[in-house]
Computed example of a mutant assay.
Amino acid sequence: MLHGLAAATTALVLTATLAALLRALMLRFGRAGDATPHLGGVAVALATLGVACAGPVLGVAELGPGVAPLLAASGGIALVGLVGDVRPLGVRVRLVAQAVAAIAVVTLAGLTPGAGALAVLWIVFVTNAFQFLDHCDGVMGAVAAVTALGLAVCAIAGGHPGNGLLLSVLAAALTGFLLHNWHPARIHLGHCGALFTGFLLASSAVTVHAGEPGGRTTAELFALTVLVLTDTLLVLLSRRRAGRPALRGGDHIAHRLRALGLTTQGSAVVLGLASLACTLIALQIHDGRLAPVAAVPLALVVPVAVVLFLRVPVYGPASRRRPPRARTPSGPAPHTASVDLAGGRG
């Protein structure tokens, strides 16, 4: 218990310090005109991996079986994201890297071929769904921190203390990052941090729930990730209807909340609270206090929420006529009306 608190505190302070240092270095030596650096995810990844590995190295805690490969795979995804932050990296390259890392995690988790194939697809989808969520100051950090804490509780209750410690450290690191990413953000996660966080959360969820009843696991994982899944479904449908490129931003749930009158900070708080509510439902399902059928109302809420949010106008009149500047969900913010509307990024 004391080691877990010490590890979480260390991760929080270390991430906050590293993020400040990275921001200062990028403002001094980075590209001209990049007022808000986007390599904050390096701080999150380094702090999470470093603190998690420190326990076994110092002999104060053991991570347990399966955690070391998970750390290695997540670190590899962080490196792929870092390359994408520094130079253009194709979507196919990122997807292949995620699939290979997910296959390694699923294989070591001992899943059957059928369940393993579904788990790989789910990990890749959730990884990119969390990357999509990195579009507005504070949103990704708040939602991911709450999700990580929920998964940590599930891991500890299920007899996986090593995974619980790792997820607690990740939640603390994201909280330290939020100190710099709360609106107005002074640094962004970038591909490195967004992909690392999404992959670690999704892979940890699969590892922790391997061997548990399928119905309960499905309901629990759906509840934990329903917010990011809804946001991804919303933006993909919205952009297809509007004839916009798949990576053109400005139309997430946070943007639509902003259009309805909420501030950027208010949108992050609302989404964080929504994630907390869904996480509490997932924990109740995990403890057996709620039956898996309790996730059905959440499944019904998703299409209703998508339809309602699609009715909120977020596109400018020139969105169909003028091609946008290309960017990826976690890259530097383009100067467009849609971004200004949300006070964030794409």
Score class of each variant (00 low, 15 high):
Leu260Gln: 13
Ala119Gly: 07
Glu212Trp: 13
Ala294Val: 02
Asn163Val: 02
Ile123Gly: 08
Arg239Ala: 08
Val80Ser: 00
Ala7Ser: 14
Leu111Val: 10
Ala337Ser: 14
Pro37Asp: 01
Leu221Gly: 03
Gly76Trp: 09
Leu70His: 07
Leu221Arg: 10
Val206Glu: 12
His252Val: 11
Arg327Asp: 14
Leu298Trp: 13
Ser267Met: 00
Met26Trp: 06
His252Thr: 11
Gly138Thr: 15
Gly344Cys: 06
Pro292Val: 10
Val146Ile: 14
Phe309Asp: 05
Gly159Arg: 05
Leu236Tyr: 09
Val293Arg: 14
Arg322Phe: 13
Ala54Tyr: 02
Gly114Glu: 08
Pro213Gly: 07
His180Glu: 03
Val96Asp: 03
Leu257Lys: 03
Ile123Pro: 05
Asp251Phe: 03
Ala43Gln: 03
Val307Arg: 14
Ala155Ile: 09
Leu71Trp: 06
Gln284Trp: 11
Thr207Gln: 12
Leu310Tyr: 01
Gly243Pro: 07
Asp340Thr: 13
Cys278His: 13
Arg239Trp: 05
Gln98Asp: 13
Leu280His: 01
Gly190Tyr: 06
Leu174Cys: 10
Val306Lys: 11
Val228Glu: 04
Thr9His: 05
Leu133Phe: 11
Asp231Gly: 04
Arg240Gly: 08
Asp231Cys: 07
Gly331Trp: 13
Ala333Trp: 04
Asp231Met: 04
Gly141Arg: 07
Val307Thr: 09
Leu227Glu: 06
Leu111Cys: 06
Phe222Gln: 04
Pro245Arg: 07
Val93Leu: 14
Ala145Glu: 06
His160Thr: 12
Val153Leu: 13
Phe196Ser: 06
Gly4Val: 13
Val296Arg: 05
Gly76Met: 06
His191Asn: 15
Phe309Trp: 14
Gly164Arg: 10
Gly84Ala: 12
Pro324Cys: 13
Gly249Met: 00
Val302Tyr: 08
Leu341Arg: 14
Leu280Pro: 01
Val314Trp: 02
Arg289Leu: 15
Leu121Arg: 01
Val42Asn: 00
Ala242Thr: 01
Leu298Arg: 09
Ala274His: 04
Thr10Leu: 12
Ala104Glu: 13
His255Trp: 04
Trp122Thr: 12
Ala97Gly: 15
Ala119Ile: 10
Leu178Glu: 03
Asp231Tyr: 04
Ala19Asp: 09
Ser338Glu: 15
Thr48Ala: 11
Thr10Met: 04
Leu165Cys: 04
Leu118Gly: 15
Phe199His: 08
Thr264Phe: 00
Met26Thr: 04
Gly346His: 09
Pro297Trp: 06
Pro113Trp: 09
Val208Gln: 08
Phe177Gly: 00
Ala45Gln: 04
Val270Gln: 03
Ala268Ser: 12
Thr17Glu: 01
Ala148Thr: 03
Ala291Leu: 15
Leu121Ala: 15
Ala254Trp: 02
